[in-house]
Computed example of a mutant assay.
Amino acid sequence: MDLPNIFSKNIADGVIERINQLTPHTKALWGKMNAAQMLAHCNVTYEMVYTDKHPKAGFLMKLILKWFVKQQVVTDKPYPKNSKTAPAFIIIDEKEFEAEKERLIEYVRQTQVLGASAFDGKVSHSFGVLDANEWNNMFYKHLDHHLKQFGV
C-alpha cells in the first residue's frame, strides 16, 4: 500500500481515534467547513460505496474523471489545501456533529472489516475499476487531509 493501510485494524483504529478527538467546536486550520460539515463531507465517499444516495457519473463524465481527476485522488500524493471538490461533496447546510461522527466511524470500521480483498477490482462511483491500493489511497488520503485540516 502506498499510504497507511486503512484496511488494517491498527490504522483504522488510529483514524477513528483522530476522529474522536474532534468536537463540534474544533476549528479548521483552513477552508470553509465547520467540523460537522467536514464529517458529512467525508461521509460522501462512503455513501458512494455503500448506498445509492448519489447518482453515478454518466459515461462521458466518468471518462473525463478517469482522465483528469483519478490520478489526483487515488495516488499517494497529498491533496493541496483548499483544493476544489466535486459538487456531491460540497456541504453548505448545518449538520448534526455526533450523527455525522458516528456515521463516519461506522463507515471506517465497515471498510476495515471488509478488507482490501473486498475492494480489489471493485468499481468506483466515478473512476471505474480500482485496485485495493487505489481504494486505500482514496479512503486514507481523504480522511487524513481533512483530519489535518482540523488539527487532529
Rank of each mutant, 00 (worst) to 15 (best):
E47D: 11
K70W: 09
P4D: 09
D13G: 03
F119G: 02
Q21W: 04
F89W: 11
H25E: 14
T45P: 01
Y107S: 04
S124A: 08
L147D: 00
C42Q: 13
M1H: 10
G14P: 00
I92K: 15
Q37T: 09
I90L: 10
G14M: 05
S124N: 14
L147E: 02
K77P: 04
F119W: 04
N5C: 07
M33W: 02
A116L: 01
H54F: 11
I16D: 03
K62R: 15
H54I: 11
A118D: 03
Q149I: 00
E47V: 03
F119K: 06
F127T: 12
I91Y: 11
W30D: 15
H142N: 03
I64E: 05
A116G: 10
A88T: 08
L114Y: 05
L65V: 08
L130R: 02
Y107R: 04
K84I: 05
H145F: 06
F7A: 04
E134T: 06
A118N: 03
K56S: 13
F89M: 14
I90V: 15
C42H: 09
V108K: 13
D144K: 03
N43L: 08
Q21P: 00
L65Q: 06
Y50M: 05
H54T: 10
L29C: 04
I91Q: 14
Q110G: 05
K56R: 10
K32I: 07
D76I: 00
H54A: 01
K101G: 11
E96S: 08
A99D: 11
K56T: 08
N136E: 05
A12F: 05
N43K: 14
G31V: 00
A88Y: 09
